[in-house]
């Protein structure tokens, strides 16, 4: 599979986002670039502190005011640079062009209104239509996202619904204005696996029906393998590897990507292998963004780090053939195999 030739819907160039903390100013996102085309899913994958969620909040311009700010780069959609838009202009972009689904649907829904009213409200802020028509559309949307008895559930309050149902409501709100880009930030984290399977299936179906692009933020490589066309692996605020999903899992080029893959237990590994295999864990812990090591931010945990090389200059994100990018001083000499099958 190669990268598509169609022009990107969303184009992020050299995005930088900083946060003010007690320890001073911290760069949470440090020069992130990517393209996202219609009908495609790009996964941003990383652990805590990787900057993946801050990247998605930056694209939506939803950074906490006075604490976080975009300090550089461009976010282009439909010929405009979102970084330069006023908050008022941005409100039109949210919903009309980009919508977002968060991990915690309970905190994004208002507890005192019915879910039907909340969906209708979202429709009314963007469409000039009657309240009655918006209500009708809300019920249709609840049906689209697979909620049984949608007319009845439209009258329910968020707390009367399960976590999975609330996430469906969030997706219905996101869909209400037919966005071109859906940002899904850990949309299934915290849900039971059988419910996660339902939500992922729903998102795939909706993407097929609407052709929307999805920016999928997750820590779960299983979900990445299932949902993504292309993957950005992030570590300490930077992209460390970018590739089409199959190529990435076949042969990761960055030791951190390989380490993440090896950290996941392989389901069914004991059926044919040893009874109590060990995982190949990455040693140490994720550095805090206010205390990054010099050179490559991963070198203190990397089994392949060369003293005097990896600890000195931060490596650049460079093309590695086949539309791939990798940030590692040693990627040409390393031959990393993926998979944790013991």
């Amino acid at each position: 599979m190669t990268a598509p030739a169609q022009p990107p819907l969303l184009e992020v160039r050299d995005l930088r986002t900083e946060f003010r903390t007690d320890e001073g100013v911290v760069r949470a996102v440090d020069g992130v670039s990517f393209n996202l085309e219609a009908g495609r899913t790009l996964a941003l994958v990383g652990e805590s502190g990787s900057g993946k969620s801050v990247t998605s909040l930056s694209v939506m311009r939803l950074l906490p005011e006075g604490i976080g700010a975009i300090t550089g780069g461009e976010i282009r959609i439909g010929g405009r640079d979102l970084v330069r838009l006023s908050e008022r202009q941005m409100r039109r972009v949210r919903g009309d062009e980009i919508a977002m689904v968060f991990q915690e649907p309970m905190t994004s829904l208002t507890p005192v209104y019915t879910v039907g009213d909340q969906i209708a409200e979202a429709i009314l802020t963007h469409d000039h239509t009657s309240r009655r028509a918006a209500r009708r559309r809300a019920v249709e949307l609840l049906e689209t996202v697979g909620i049984p008895e949608p007319a009845v559930r439209a009258r329910a309050y968020p707390h009367q619904l399960s976590g999975g149902m609330r996430q469906r409501v969030m997706i219905a709100i996101a869909l209400s204005c037919n966005p071109k880009v859906l940002i899904a930030d850990e949309p299934t984290t915290g849900l039971d696996v059988t419910i996660q399977a339902q939500i992922l299936e729903l998102m795939r179906r909706l993407q097929k029906e609407t052709g929307m692009a999805i920016l999928f933020i997750t820590h779960d490589l299983g979900v990445v393998a299932e949902m993504a066309d292309r993957v950005l692996v992030m570590y300490a605020g930077k992209v460390v590897e970018e590739a089409e999903v199959q190529a990435l899992f076949d042969r990761p080029l960055m030791p951190y990507t390989q380490g993440l893959m090896n950290s996941i237990p392989t389901l069914g590994a004991t059926v044919t292998g040893a009874a109590h295999p060990r995982l190949k864990a990455i040693r140490g812990s994720i550095p805090s963004p206010d205390n990054l090591p010099p050179g490559c931010a991963f070198h203190t945990r990397c089994d392949f780090a060369l003293p005097g090389v990896c600890s000195n200059a931060p490596p650049a994100l460079e093309p590695a053939g086949g539309g791939r990018l990798v940030r590692c001083a040693r990627w040409r000499e390393l031959d990393l195999a993926s998979g944790s099958a013991a």
Partner: peptide, 18 residues
């Protein structure tokens, strides 16, 4: 077992979605 996402692209089998 079937619902667990597997870190292998294209490995999504005939999933039993409850």
């Amino acid at each position: 077992l079937s619902a667990a996402p597997v870190p292998k692209p294209g490995a999504r089998r005939d999933r039993i979605v409850l």
